[in-house]
């Protein structure tokens, strides 16, 4: 089994990225953002594979034929959020204008010391969660992720903020999920991005924009074992320095009967896919899964 996005290596050299970080922090955001224009045009011309891969998504999300301009917007949105991660990690979250919706669903539970799963995606920025004032209350936020695919980016961001590197729980070790459980037991929040299927993941097929796509099956199963509230999170980038952050209660508890595990996992994951699709329509250019999501091109 091959999964598209793993095949696409991260482009760009370490030196260029370091230069961009230096620019971002010491020259400023407007000048660095100006550089994103030629960079995005470069990728638009030379990363044919990613362009081809994202096309079916854009056609579905925008509901019609797409232009190069739509593709460009996709790249520019991605590059902007990547650049903003530098500021978020450098502790400059206050420079962003963030429209926060539904934060109470998380805040209330966290204030009661109840651990929560924050169910995110690769639509928009997850990192923006660090800028919404939750962290000021000393709430532990960890993110469960498969990290090996981006060693360069990981190292760069680790240099910027080692504490954030500690906030990552890497999947793949027998004790990964024990760490998740322990964080939740301490009243912490664990972020899981539930839209990207990894090679080792079991999959469940869900309708997404009218066509079946494979989603990881483990997320809902894990949630059912952990028995904590699950809250959806979407950090949408809205241009300039604006973000729009949505919190939605997904379930007080995901309950799955083991005897009907596959069917119930599918049902819960479909609910997630539906909400993801809803937010994709609100911010189509925020989709950062630059691979063949429906596996149509093999």
């Amino acid at each position: 089994m091959t999964v598209g996005w793993l095949r696409q290596r991260e482009r760009g050299s370490r030196i260029a990225s370091r230069f961009m970080i230096w620019m971002a922090l010491f020259v400023g955001r407007p000048a660095t953002r100006a550089l994103l224009y030629p960079i995005c045009v470069y990728y638009l011309i030379f990363s044919k594979q990613a362009c081809r891969a994202i096309r079916p998504y854009l056609i579905r999300a925008l509901g019609g034929p797409i232009s190069r301009r739509d593709l460009y917007r996709q790249y520019h949105c991605f590059a902007s959020t990547l650049l903003d991660r530098v500021y978020l990690l450098a502790g400059q979250g206050n420079r962003f204008d963030i429209d926060i919706r539904g934060l109470d669903v998380l805040k209330d539970r966290v204030a009661r010391g109840q651990g929560c799963i924050l169910l995110g995606s690769h639509l928009g920025s997850f990192e923006i969660v660090r800028a919404i004032g939750l962290t000021q209350q000393d709430i532990e936020i960890k993110v469960l992720m498969y990290e090996q695919h981006t060693p360069m980016i990981r190292d760069l961001f680790r240099d910027l903020n080692p504490a954030v590197a500690d906030a990552v729980i890497r999947t793949g070790s027998p004790n990964s999920m024990l760490r998740v459980k322990e964080c939740l037991d301490r009243g912490g929040v664990v972020g899981i991005l539930a839209d990207r299927l990894l090679k080792q993941d079991q999959a469940t097929a869900c309708t997404f924009f009218g066509k079946l796509a494979r989603f990881p099956a483990g997320t809902m199963w894990l949630a059912s074992i952990l028995k904590v509230p699950v809250i959806l999170f979407f950090g949408l980038y809205r241009g300039g320095n604006r973000y729009e952050v949505h919190f939605e209660l997904f379930a007080e508890e995901v309950t799955i009967d083991r005897r009907h595990r596959d069917r119930e996992v599918q049902r819960w994951t479909q609910r997630y896919a539906d909400r993801l699709e809803h937010h994709c329509r609100l911010a189509a250019d925020n989709w950062f899964n630059f691979y063949d999501f429906w596996e149509e091109q093999r």
Binding site: S173, P174, S176, M177, L178, V180, G218, W221, L222, I225
Partner: peptide, 11 residues
């Protein structure tokens, strides 16, 4: 087994 199995098993 996978890491979710490890969690169930440890519980």
């Amino acid at each position: 087994l996978d890491s979710i199995d490890a969690l169930e098993l440890s519980l």
